[in-house]
């Protein structure tokens, strides 16, 4: 489906299909990196930028998804301090055990011994470039080639950033990701 939308990008009529197919996932990607209010705005901005630049979209340099993720990632980059603050806040507090008497059962997501707190602290310790490649792979499910296309960097750069990030995350969390 992604490939079939490549030709829809330049056509204003068919751009709606691109929006319908990818808005939710771009919003979710940004919303997992920044506060939701900001993410809502940046998701909209991502598609406005894409719409304005639709004529310069080059399918041969990657598909629609990497292109959109690339725009979104650059917009997130303008808020990198806010993103790091968010990770640090999560690392400090984590999910609360109780919430002012709300007796809902609260669950801290734990998988393979990795907690929100630990992982947030580890993500805060990555450089911007390292975090971008990790989260494009983790949240966007992009391949290395697609990450390279999204960020406009060489495949080797993606590989070296991921390698460094993996080492830092392993040292911080004590498990291999």
């Amino acid at each position: 489906m992604t490939a079939s939308l490549d030709g829809a990008v330049a056509d204003p009529e068919r751009f709606a299909t691109v929006f319908d197919a990818h808005y939710e996932e771009i919003r979710r990607y940004i919303g997992r990196r920044l506060d939701l209010d900001v993410a809502e705005d940046l998701a909209a901005e991502t598609f406005l930028v894409a719409f304005r630049r639709r004529h310069s979209f080059d399918a041969s340099r990657g598909g629609v998804r990497p292109w959109l993720y690339g725009i979104a990632t650059r917009l997130v980059g303008r808020h990198r301090r806010a993103e790091v603050r968010r990770y640090r806040a999560l690392a400090r507090s984590g999910p609360p055990q109780d919430d002012d008497g709300h007796d809902q059962r609260i669950v801290e997501r734990v998988s393979a011994g990795v907690t929100v707190r630990g992982l947030s602290a580890a993500l805060a310790g990555l450089s911007r470039g390292e975090r971008d490649v990790v989260l494009l792979v983790a949240y966007g499910g992009l391949t290395y080639d697609e990450v390279a296309a999204a960020l406009g960097v060489a495949n080797g750069t993606v590989a070296s950033r991921l390698s460094r990030a993996r080492t830092k995350l392993r040292d911080s969390l004590g498990v291999e990701l």
Binding site: R32, L36, L90, L119, V134, V137
Partner: peptide, 20 residues
């Protein structure tokens, strides 16, 4: 790869359809 990050980190609520 990095699925643990996807599994562990908090998710976002569904989009408000009117806003979309």
């Amino acid at each position: 790869e990095f699925q643990l990050v996807d599994d562990v980190m908090p998710d976002v609520p569904p989009a408000d359809h009117a806003r979309v």
